[in-house]
């Protein structure tokens, strides 16, 4: 049923630290690797070795530049973007077939590919570009929060986190339960003032972004011009060289 649960027991999601992300795209690659071979149909590529390769990805890293309004150096921000597992997920309610749903137990938004007819309306309803229709399979693909890893007792315990989190070499991605105020992610959000993307859309995203801390203002202790007039040995050398 594509009505949304009034509340979920847990709110599993990601806190993404924009100060720490180095834009290496390792999360993109590991996400693709895990999700092309596990839950649902593979994430297809077209023209993979040709001039214009393109394909389905569940996580993509954009890079933005913000110019501080008070002057100073611009900041470069690497910005990983995947499904935010919104509490008020518009992608779920628009689904005509019942393929899209939000889980009551942990709040993960999933697509049941056996029911999806590939109309694409959910991708239209999502402000974040989190859903991509697979060109070969014709069904909607989206982040599953690695639902097939996080509860998977066949994996070593340290691997029971989403593939993107497991692979991040910088530790920019944090996985946890936002419904628990004492969870690692809730604490990070409280500490760093975690934010929602496009709050004006009213989607109430579960995933939060930890904004970059303000950068140091460039010091005005610049080199002065005192060394322009050499003294002593350097003055002699200067004259001697000019005389040559």
């Amino acid at each position: 049923m594509t009505t949304l649960p009034t509340s979920t027991e847990k709110k599993l999601g990601l806190a993404i630290d924009l100060d720490t992300c180095v834009g290496c795209h390792a999360c993109v690659v590991n996400c693709k690797e895990w999700n092309t071979s596990n839950y649902g149909v593979p994430l297809s590529d077209e023209d993979a070795y040709g001039a214009e390769p393109h394909g389905s990805f569940l996580n993509r890293v954009h890079t933005f530049e913000a110019q501080p309004s008070g002057g100073g150096c611009s900041q470069t921000i690497h910005f990983p973007k995947s499904c935010l597992h919104c509490d008020d997920a518009p992608c779920v309610t628009v689904c005509p077939t019942g393929a899209s749903y939000k889980r009551t137990e942990d709040g993960i938004v999933l697509v049941n590919e056996n029911d999806c007819m590939g109309c694409g309306l959910c991708a239209w309803a999502c402000p974040y570009g989190a859903r991509e229709l697979d060109a070969l399979a014709g069904v909607m693909k989206k982040c599953t929060l690695c639902v097939d890893r996080i509860y998977n007792e066949n994996l070593p315990e340290e691997d029971r986190v989403p593939a993107c989190v497991r692979t991040c070499p910088a530790g920019a991605r944090h996985f946890g339960d936002f419904a628990d105020p004492n969870s690692n992610v809730s604490k990070l959000v409280a500490e760093r003032g975690g934010i929602d993307l496009m709050p004006e859309m009213g989607t109430a995203p579960v995933n939060k972004y930890l904004p970059p801390r303000p950068k140091d203002v460039p010091s005005d202790a610049a080199l002065n011009g005192e060394n322009k007039e050499p003294k002593g040995f350097l003055a002699w050398l200067d004259k001697a060289l000019e005389a040559i």
Binding site: V28, E52, H62, T63, E65, A66, S69, Q75, I77, P211
Partner: peptide, 23 residues
């Protein structure tokens, strides 16, 4: 508003996430 980076200042795209097309 899309990136939340408005708190810093005017934001622009520096590098797109992929060089080709996507859905």
């Amino acid at each position: 508003t899309a990136t939340g980076l408005g708190r810093i200042g005017k934001t622009r795209l520096l590098e797109p996430p992929h060089s080709g097309q996507n859905y």
